[in-house]
């Protein structure tokens, strides 16, 4: 028996979609190991999230529920989850590579003294061993590695597995959240102003660089992003403009920022430094607009327009507005 535990994530009572993607990956592994998939989640008021997980195809759900777990506390949650991993003799522990996954899974792995790989994009179990692929050097290379110590603990890059929907009401086991001393605890969650689309979840990323010449000209980028309608596009930025203080670090795309993989990516006034390309080269379609026809960005772009952003972008914004209005 070689069971797989998925650590699921609920925010405000609702299950996060990447958790269902992790269930898909776990079901794939369990088919090979011959074990069960057990989804474990923590919080307070988890019935709705459990109901959704119940339809995922996971064999069993363990909800560690209680007032002491109302707010995220990595130390307390990791201990409670590690206890469940031990109780279910898990040989692999999976979680989505979200802000919580990045924080929580490494601690669970340490509690279990297991091996760990994060941000994986492919998992397999063959010849008695777990293997995984993950991007390294911000995607400039891919590492394939084999776990030599169990349990194997991994986070999974979101939007890389289809969400699991193949089940009908798995058994839910309720476990009371333990009380006690919390070392670090979330006190408050402040929603981003204006309901901005998170950069890594956006269907379209409109990114600007030095070619815009001044911070205030990012209005052109914001207008183009807004033209796609609410909740569709997010604004990105090159390292140069973040370092210059034009844009917040949260918008930086590239090796010391975020790696994004949207269906559509616009690089505007971005020359295409190697560390920027690392962060966006897996976008499905890349459009580059740049004055310099020899800019490296044109080597990775599917479509390019050579020209001044101040002239091209407003025309493009109008065209997108017309298209969206006509739909």
């Amino acid at each position: 028996m070689s069971n797989i535990v998925v650590i699921a994530e609920a925010r405000g009572g609702a299950l996060k979609r990447p958790s269902l993607e992790a269930v898909t990956a776990a079901l794939g592994l369990a088919k090979q190991t011959g074990g069960k998939v057990i989804a474990v989640l923590c919080g307070s008021g988890l019935d709705a999230a459990c109901a959704e997980l119940g339809k995922s195809g996971a064999n069993q759900i363990v909800a560690i529920d209680g007032a002491s777990f109302a707010n995220y506390s990595g130390d307390a949650w990791a201990k409670a989850i590690a206890d469940q991993c031990k109780a279910h003799a898990a040989t692999a522990v999976l979680m989505a590579h979200t802000a919580m996954g990045k924080d929580l899974l490494p601690r669970v792995s340490a509690q279990l003294d297991g091996s760990v790989l994060t941000d994986t994009v492919e998992l397999a179990f063959a010849g008695g061993a777990f293997t995984a692929k993950k991007p390294v050097f911000a995607g400039k290379a891919t590492m394939t590695a084999k776990a030599t110590k169990l349990p194997f603990c991994a986070t999974l890059r979101p939007n890389n597995f289809a969400p699991a929907t193949g089940g009908s009401g798995a058994e839910v086991q309720k476990v009371a959240a333990p009380g006690g001393d919390l070392l670090a605890v979330v006190k408050e969650i402040i929603a981003a102003a204006g309901g901005k689309t998170p950069l890594q979840e956006a269907k379209v990323v409109v990114a600007g660089g030095r070619g815009l010449k001044e911070a205030q000209h990012f209005k052109l980028i914001e207008d183009l992003a807004a033209a796609f309608g609410p909740g569709v596009a997010a604004v990105g930025a090159s390292r140069a403009v973040v370092d210059a203080g034009w844009r917040p670090h949260g918008e930086q795309v590239g090796q010391t920022g975020k790696v994004v993989s949207p269906p559509l990516y616009f690089a505007i006034g971005i020359s295409g430094a190697i560390q920027h390309l690392a962060g966006m080269r897996t976008a499905r379609t890349i459009v580059a607009i740049n004055k310099d026809a020899d800019a490296p960005i044109f080597k990775v772009a599917d479509f390019g327009i050579v020209g001044d952003a101040f002239e091209v972008v407003p025309a493009l914004t109008k065209a997108i507005q017309a298209l969206v209005a006509g739909k």
Binding site: V116, K299, V300, A301, G304, V306, V312
Partner: peptide, 27 residues
Amino acid sequence: RGVEIQALTLPAARAAGKILGNGADAV
């Protein structure tokens, strides 16, 4: 060791793109 590297590979190069034209006329 908890993990052992089996391979390190470079991603496939993207196919060369197409310049559609110059300026706003190319929109």
